[in-house]
């Protein structure tokens, strides 16, 4: 089982590279049970959207 701290690292990296199958499954499993990490994911998705709006390129998360 992933720790929350490790999960935040994977969530960040998921914005930059495709995750491996094992990482992806571990992440899904953790998120299923952890609302804190689900909120962290929502927050950093919004952060990406905000950053793109800041530069006038609002094309949403990948």
């Amino acid at each position: 089982m992933l720790t929350c701290k490790h999960t935040t690292r994977l969530l960040s990296e998921a914005l930059d590279r495709p995750l491996g199958k094992r990482e992806y499954l571990a992440l899904r499993l953790h998120l299923l049970f952890c609302r804190g990490c689900r909120a962290f994911r929502q927050n950093i998705y919004v952060l990406r959207k905000v950053s793109r709006s800041f530069m006038g390129r609002d094309d949403g998360p990948n």
């Binding site: 929350c4 701290k5 804190g36 909120a39 962290f40």
Partner: peptide
């Protein structure tokens, strides 16, 4: 200590 969110600082949806 166990690297899970401390209850007071657990993120909340924006």
């Amino acid at each position: 200590e166990n690297e899970h969110w401390s209850p007071v600082s657990r993120p909340r949806p924006w």
